[in-house]
Amino acid sequence: MNCIPCAEYIIVALMIGSAILAVEWRDLLAAAVGMAAVSLFASILFFLLQAPDVAMTEAAIGAALSGAVVIFAIKRTQRFETEEEERPGWWIRW
């Protein structure tokens, strides 16, 4: 049974879900990790679309360097989106 299409559907769904979470999470550190996850899933999709060059670049840049640069910026500014002190969300305490 050839089930490449279901894998495609699952990856696209996971990618959109990570994008929504990356925009909605109020903890910026978690949002950076969500952004890196979007890049990683997009890199898998690039590979399925027969673009191995782009997939390699996206995996090296999007998942490692881009997330790292955002995390450095968060380290030098503030972690939460608003000024009030907030606790880490349920996804960490779970």
């Binding site: 060059d53 090296a60 840049i61």
Partner: peptide, 17 residues
């Protein structure tokens, strides 16, 4: 092979990271 200067340079930067 797939690759080239842009992914290679990014990989080298990852090593320093």
């Amino acid at each position: 092979t797939p690759g080239g200067g842009f992914p290679g340079g990014a990989t080298i930067a990852t090593a320093f990271l």
